[in-house]
Design a protein around this nucleic acid. Structure first.
Length: 466
RNA sequence: GGCCCGUUCGUCUAUCGGUUAGGACACCAGGUUUUCAACCUGGGAAGAGGGGUUCGACUCCCCUACGGGCUGCCA
């Protein structure tokens, strides 16, 4: 049983997406469940928009979770209940210290050159001395010795208890603190493996104390390193895409994202290109690296191209439509969809991303009159026009198959003592309006005889360029 | 400041005391080719630095440097 527990304070971060993926792979690969919990206890910063963005991001990435997403805020009463239970068990106490008192204590400690761990005077106070004032519930944490975190990724990590204060579990306004809420929720939800960013590694020690205080079984910890930008610094907006939605907008197939993210900080021997089935079979916590990984867009792009080439046409078209919708472009019309289907075999080996796929399909999607770019127009010189005029009637009567078309073009070229290259250039220009396109024969086969002839006729009367 | 974690080609990584330190992406060169891409062949490229331990360290220990995290009545 694993879970992903994001705070809804913004879009889904690429690092969070990888954390979610790891949890998903681990659970799904072992017949376990993958749960989703929204940590929305910070009412100031949590927004429903952010929650929606996170769910949307996970759906796009293809990570399905079991059951309904749990709202942590909604479970506040249960958290408070546990806090009071800890009080009853003598594992926590009421602290009446005010913010000002705590600040003063910390300042004094710092000034004295000591580590500023607040030591509440109420820890062992006689309940009879309790004032009638608001209080927070603090955990009675051990003051010496050390807490051992057995982590599946980091190994055994020792944390000195004197570094940890008696953390507050229930605020003076009665609301639970994150550190308590996670533990209670993970326990209640039956989470057995906590896979999360290593920014929580130190927190695990305090959280483990809560498990101990309640007599609950501590889950398997797995703290994974964060993802860094290409320069090795903490990932931030200046590195480019940080939010998962940006990767969707960049036009990477979700499968490629999963593959790339999975390989980031984890490896299975020399395996580089693989799908979900292999990932689920191979993924394990022990294989996760301990050093932060950097994002490499070139590699992502390469992987993306490999996945596009390997995907089934129908699935590719379906995801392409979703991409177009996501970036606010008009979706393919039934007619365009049909053209794309026919063009796909000659297209998908050439495109690394969806925008590239669309770009390279321009010849098929374009409608007459074609607007040639300057280079295409230049390719259409007088000599070329002559050759094309000669070719046109032969194409009209040719059998519309690759070999036949190739034979016609080769013959015409040979008649002028030219190679294929010389005649392909103007042909390409006439058919696509560009100087870069898929193979001229692929294009003819996709758009068909009528369209081919129409485009040739049109190109024959393009205005001359000097 | 204190505590915790990390450091193998430019990047992601393999290695888990004995290897010519392997692969992938990227890069460079050549080939193929109707353009681009793809593809094929070849090439350069790494154990942060310093001490130990050991017959033998990228692998184990210590120190330094660098990077990251935590140190809240934030999550």
């Amino acid at each position: 049983m694993t879970r992903f527990a994001p705070s809804p304070t913004g879009y889904l971060h690429i690092g969070g997406a990888r954390t979610a993926l790891f949890n998903w792979l681990y659970a799904r690969g072992r017949g376990g469940k993958f749960l989703l919990r929204i940590e929305d206890t910070d009412r100031e910063r949590s927004t429903p928009e952010a929650t929606a963005a996170i769910l949307q991001g996970l759906r796009w990435l293809g990570l399905d979770w079991d059951g309904e997403a749990v709202s942590q805020f909604a479970r506040a009463p249960r958290h408070a209940e546990v806090a009071h239970e800890m009080l009853a068990r003598g594992r926590a106490y009421k602290c009446f210290a005010t913010a000002a008192e705590i600040d003063a204590f910390r300042e004094a400690e710092k000034a004295a050159g000591r580590y500023p761990v607040f030591q509440s005077p109420w820890r062992d106070a006689d309940p009879a001395s309790h004032p009638d004032a608001p209080y927070a519930i603090r955990m009675k944490a051990p003051r010496d010795g050390e807490t051992l975190i057995c982590d599946a990724v980091q190994g055994t990590v020792k944390v000195r208890n004197d570094q940890l204060d008696d953390m507050i579990v229930l605020r003076s306004d009665g609301t639970p603190v994150y550190m308590l809420a996670v533990v209670v929720d993970d326990h209640d939800m039956g989470v057995t493996h906590v896979i999360r960013g290593d920014d929580h590694l130190n927190n695990a020690a305090r959280q483990q104390m809560v498990y101990d205080a309640m007599g609950w079984e501590v889950p398997v910890w797995a703290h994974i390193p964060l993802i860094h930008g290409p320069d090795g610094k903490k990932l931030s907006k200046r590195h480019g895409a940080v939010g998962l939605h940006e990767y969707q907008a960049l036009g990477y197939p979700a499968q490629a994202m999963r593959n790339y993210l999975c390989r980031l900080g984890w490896a299975h021997g020399d395996a580089e290109f693989f799908g979900d089935a292999e990932a689920m079979e191979w993924f394990d916590l022990a294989g996760i690296g301990r050093a932060p990984a950097r994002l490499d867009f070139k590699k992502l792009e390469n992987l993306s191209g490999q996945h596009i080439a390997a995907m089934a046409d129908a699935a590719l078209l379906h995801e392409l439509q979703a991409y177009l919708e996501a970036v606010g472009q008009p979706k393919l019309s039934p007619h365009q969809h049909d053209l794309m289907t026919r063009a796909m075999p000659s297209l998908k080996d050439r495109a690394k991303t969806f925008p590239e796929l669309v770009e390279k399909a321009a010849f098929a999607l374009a409608s007459r009159p074609l607007v040639p770019d300057a280079k295409a127009r230049a390719a259409m010189d007088a000599v070329s026009r002559g050759i094309l005029n000669e070719l046109t009637p032969r194409l009209r009567d040719a059998s519309w198959e690759r070999e036949a078309l190739e034979a016609e073009v080769t013959q015409v070229a040979a008649g002028h003592g030219l190679g294929m290259g010389k005649i392909a250039a103007p042909l390409r220009a006439a058919l696509s309006g560009r100087t870069v396109s898929p193979s001229v024969f692929d294009m003819m086969l996709v758009i068909g005889r009528d369209e081919t002839l129409a485009r040739l006729a049109e190109a024959a009367v393009w205005p001359e360029t000097a």
